[in-house]
Design a protein around this nucleic acid. Structure first.
Lengths: 113, 113
DNA sequence: TTTGTATTTCGTAAAAATACGAAAATGAAA
DNA sequence: TTTCATTTTCGTATTTTTACGAAATACAAA
């Protein structure tokens, strides 16, 4: 073919974008922080802290679940949410490797001097 | 007031979300990686690597500029782009602190044992 | 000055994200 | 079973994002 243009995005780039998208709304960041600080908590406590209608909070929780960052389980009349710790570690690794990319490049250059 | 609901998002949460949003599309992740690997390069080289129309690539570059992550400068008939290294460090700090939030909580718990 | 190359801007279309309130669903408790 | 509290789903409106091609811009070189 004439141009190398039509390469697909790499799986890694897609994964980074997917995690980043989950964090791309302040309500979702706030929800994650709240969950992390309490280890676990139920919907109404989360909703109390987020300045949005319950139904919208529910939507954001669904987004976070789809991204694999939280999980919910039924607890009496409530639904208990917590961070999906395993996937959170993946997010951590993927995002920090990405954020460090430039630095590691510098390290490489230094080591070649 | 009756409910503590209507608190605004914290500035930190807004900043995290803003950076995350800049990374929330694989084309933008790919552009940033490309720029980091070359230190600097001009539009046509970036566009060659991204499977989108030039005008769309330009739009994504504008997004990255608005987020403060890259800067462009005129270079003859070309426009030379590079990562805004200062802001990238802020992104790194902000995102890694956020991603570590749970871990530091565990560390605190461990140290209290 | 005309031409050519590189990039952006414009106009626009289609899809996705965000938000809300009303209604439905779930399951505990009366 | 009826009722109550909690949460989700539905319907829908608005805004934002993403994408493209055509046209405009900028400026170097002929």
């Amino acid at each position: 073919m004439a141009s190398p243009k039509k390469e697909r995005y790499s799986n890694e780039d897609i994964l980074i974008a997917r995690f980043a998208k989950a964090l791309s709304h302040p309500a979702r960041v706030s929800i994650l922080k709240h969950l992390a600080s309490l280890d676990t908590c139920c919907f109404n406590e989360i909703s109390k802290v987020i300045p949005l209608a319950d139904s919208t909070v529910s939507q954001h929780l669904t987004e976070l679940q789809k991204a694999g960052l939280i999980q919910g389980s039924i607890e009496a009349p409530r639904i208990k949410y917590c961070i999906n710790w395993k996937n959170w570690q993946l997010l951590r690794k993927v995002l920090s490797d990405f954020a460090d990319m430039k630095i590691s490049k510098y390290e490489k250059e230094f080591s070649e001097l």
